[in-house]
Write a protein that binds this DNA or RNA. Structure first.
Lengths: 266, 266
DNA sequence: CTGATAAGTGTATTCAATACACAGTTCTAG
DNA sequence: CTAGAACTGTGTATTGAATACACTTATCAG
């Protein structure tokens, strides 16, 4: 009944961690020269510069000119540090509400902002766990996305569901992009060559009989970059095949909301 | 010009690895007592029983009664072993073509089969890298999904795009499910309690002003399980809120294909 | 002023991946 | 039929990471 109340689950603990609700205010002892914020920042810098694999407690502490163990005064474990990094990485502001109330445009904008952020910090999408958002930054992005979705006419539960689906698609897409880009950099090839190599590999094992549709895909060179498709899009935002998927999802929402409005709805 | 032809990218290498196109046939030397297949199987068993974290080279070799280093005769690295495990984990057969040609039903079926598989082997969705499918099993699943998508009227490129989107959503959803379930098991709470804890944590930091939509979500108890919603669905397949998202995606495809049929398309 | 307490250090432990040299086995060439 | 080449599994050592624990020293509360 003292400290043994109920072992908080990870996600609940993370919320407290991310809002600094843990760690009681200090009274005695030397003033800390390090701080949680500084540690997180240093870890971010390492991740930005050399990827998430480069982030070790030793590396981060070295970066700061302290010993490895000093970090443990400010974060309980490396896992906690990662959780903190993930929220901190989402620092930028998501797009605000649109004047015209166009939820489709708003959501596309939101998706593109997320993509931009993920592309700028591609290590974020490689961290496996990343539960539901719990920190100030993560929640801010969630709020912005949910706002648009609810604006479409979905109820909140439906909106949450669609937000998860969209986020998953964005994450995964950037993860694949990044993997390709890494493969290219590592092997010293261009992206096109990497894709061609992969296709060529598949062609060796994909038979018309067992994998007719994949064979068709290889035949139509879907994996190789389509110069036409990219050139057709306007030049501003980085527009990709992914936009096709996003638009289909928006179509799906639109047709659902419309049908419900007609039939039974709120 | 001898062995230094072009450093194959990961994905291209993986295809060869997964189809056993590496490792030339052996001529001399003692007959291997171990084999790649046996190693993979043992690794799968460990992962199934104790999760992916439990899979170490030492653990797998111990399982087989061999030394750690013996494994390296059969796989080049742990990473290769993981790639092999991932494909091997997808062994079950995806649903075959439907007699009635109903692509919507076919895709829902496909999604549910994938979900079943992922839920049965939830460690699969925790492995971060898992590039595009390259092995026999992964390609079989891909083929089945693509087949239905192309059946809807999408062209192959569009189908690939939508398959990626759907897969990402399924993966991510199971990942979250699993995380919740783990949190519950670890803390000895029920799933409901874990969700309530998380909501309670959020309520402490989410203000009406800064996060109006999330506040609404908390107010409507979206995160707590809705007994009504689940009871409404038929009892057969495990049906979740996720099905809502899947259906919207199918709606989106349907309306797109229909519109294109009317307007310009092939 | 003085002792409890906290910050950062140093050292040691544990665990994982994997490089490398070796011993024993089996196939092939002469 | 036999010598050695080539290959299997073993033993040992190295490296890198996370983190426990004991220690020194700086503060501040009483």
């Amino acid at each position: 009944m003292t400290t043994e109340d109920a072992p908080k689950s990870r996600m609940a603990r993370d919320v407290e961690l991310l809002w600094g609700l843990d760690s009681p205010p200090r009274r005695r002892g030397p003033k800390p020269r390090l701080s949680r914020e500084v540690v997180i920042r240093a870890a971010l810098d390492v991740a930005d510069a050399e990827g998430i694999e480069a982030v070790s407690m030793q590396r981060v502490s070295k970066e700061l000119g302290y010993t490895t163990m000093s970090l443990y005064r400010h974060v309980d474990s490396k896992e906690d540090l990662l959780v903190l990094m993930l929220d901190a990485a989402m620092e930028g502001a998501p797009p605000g509400p649109r004047a015209d109330g166009d939820w489709r445009a708003g959501l596309e904008e939101w998706c593109h902002s997320v993509l931009e952020l993920y592309r700028h910090r591609s290590w974020v999408v490689r961290v496996a766990f990343s539960g539901p958002p719990g920190g100030p930054n993560g929640l801010r992005w969630m709020e912005a996305g949910l706002r648009e979705l609810v604006g479409s006419g979905l109820d909140v539960g439906e909106a949450v569901q669609m937000l998860m689906l969209l986020s998953a698609a964005l994450r995964e897409n950037v993860r694949l992009e990044t993997e390709m880009a890494d493969a290219a950099r590592t092997t010293g090839n261009t992206l096109t060559e990497v894709e061609r190599d992969y296709s060529r590999g598949l062609r060796r094992v994909v038979t018309e009989e067992e994998f007719p549709t994949i064979a068709l895909m290889l035949h139509e060179q879907v994996l190789e970059p389509q110069p036409t498709a990219q050139a057709t899009e306007r030049a501003g935002e980085p527009t990709h095949e992914l936009d096709f998927g996003i638009r289909r999802v928006l179509d799906g929402i639109e047709s659902y909301v419309r049908a419900r409005g007609t039939t039974g709805g709120a």
